[in-house]
Computed example of a mutant assay.
Amino acid sequence: MKTFSSTHYRFIFILLVGMMACSGNKDQSESSDMAEAVTLSVPDMAHNSRNSLDWFGVYRGTTPCADCEGIETSITLKRDGTFKRSMKYLGKDENSFFDEGEFQWNDEGSKVILPGEAGMRQMYQVGENVLFHLDQEGNRITGDLASMYRLEKNRTDYLLEDKNWILIELRGKAIEKKEEQKAGHILFNMETGMFSGNNTCNNFFGQYELMEANRIKFGQAGSTLMACPDMETERLFMEVLKTADNYSIADGILSLNRAKMAPLARFELSDE
């Protein structure tokens, strides 16, 4: 059966309006009802997943696998139209796959299309904080395993993320910036799920994940390898990133904590 785009529908509507104008008042009520029906059938392209959802971010989940225990998948969708994808085939020796590139939206703005090897592609339906893994025809997967074909978006916190936090206290001691020392700071990137900053000597970076009740999980951090006069502050800073498991924010102050103990480190929100 032939389908029509929103452009076709609008053309039909304009044609109906012209016919009503030419026919004067004859059957005006009936023509108005027809025009209203056509207008209501035009898709509202301004309210689709692409335009109305905060779809950018990191999605994670484990989908079924035909010859392994499952495919642990992470997909980062960025606002500039690029993606990063990693897949780990659980229970296999050669089990890791990574790619990146540009993704596309379908015409309706409801699905994203990621390219793959040998011309293959994978489509995902974009929902509220979720990506639904679709079949090769772009349809939702049904059956007993349907609920497993979904990737959940990382939690976000607008009070924490995309802000520059300056180190002011470490292990209960105020930080006094020395002339030869860089300012310690940390930033949490909502779009990529990456943390980065400087530990008063070296730049560092890694992945993080937010969970319920202001819990946070820091991944293994990488850093540059410069030598500085005061390496103890750097050591303590990096130790905080290994041990902190929750955070709190109050009056522009971020605290990184371990369980319910005293704050491991405190930061103030930068004005810059």
Rank of each mutant, 00 (worst) to 15 (best):
V42Y: 09
M123F: 12
V112L: 13
E161D: 03
E72R: 08
V42R: 12
D230H: 04
R266A: 00
M87A: 13
W105R: 06
F195N: 15
D162E: 07
G91L: 11
L134T: 03
K26R: 13
M226E: 11
G24V: 05
L114I: 15
G172C: 05
N198T: 15
T73E: 12
S23N: 13
S23G: 08
E102I: 05
L90M: 10
G219N: 07
G91H: 06
G81K: 08
S223H: 01
G91I: 09
F204G: 00
P115M: 14
M231I: 00
L40M: 14
D162T: 03
A183C: 05
F188H: 09
I12G: 03
T3Y: 02
A146V: 02
P64I: 02
N95T: 06
K2Q: 03
S6H: 01
K260S: 10
D33W: 13
L53R: 12
D251N: 07
I175G: 03
W165Q: 03
D230W: 03
G109S: 11
F103E: 03
Q122R: 14
L77I: 06
S31D: 12
D135N: 15
G57T: 04
V17P: 00
E234C: 01
T82Q: 09
E179K: 09
K92S: 13
N106V: 08
T192N: 10
A66C: 02
D44T: 11
T243R: 02
Q122P: 05
R155I: 01
A66T: 10
M226I: 04
R215V: 00
M20F: 05
C65E: 13
R155P: 00
M123R: 11
T7C: 03
A183Q: 14
L40S: 15
M148F: 07
K178R: 14
Q104C: 05
S6C: 06
N139Y: 09
Q122Y: 07
M238S: 07
G138Q: 04
H185D: 08
A118E: 12
V126D: 08
E179S: 12
M148P: 04
E36G: 13
G119H: 11
A244D: 02
A265W: 01
D27W: 11
G81I: 05
L145I: 05
F98V: 11
F4D: 01
T142Y: 04
E191G: 04
F98Q: 08
D33Q: 15
E180K: 14
E94R: 13
D27G: 13
L134E: 09
D93Y: 09
G119I: 11
M123I: 08
I71L: 14
H185K: 13
L167N: 01
W165E: 04
F267R: 00
S49A: 15
M211W: 08
E30C: 07
G197E: 01
T73C: 08
T156W: 03
E212T: 11
K242G: 01
Q136S: 15
S147Q: 13
L114N: 06
T63F: 12
G172M: 04
Q28L: 10
N246K: 02
T233K: 05
F205G: 15
L15F: 06
S31W: 14
A146G: 06
E128G: 02
K88M: 11
F97P: 00
T3S: 05
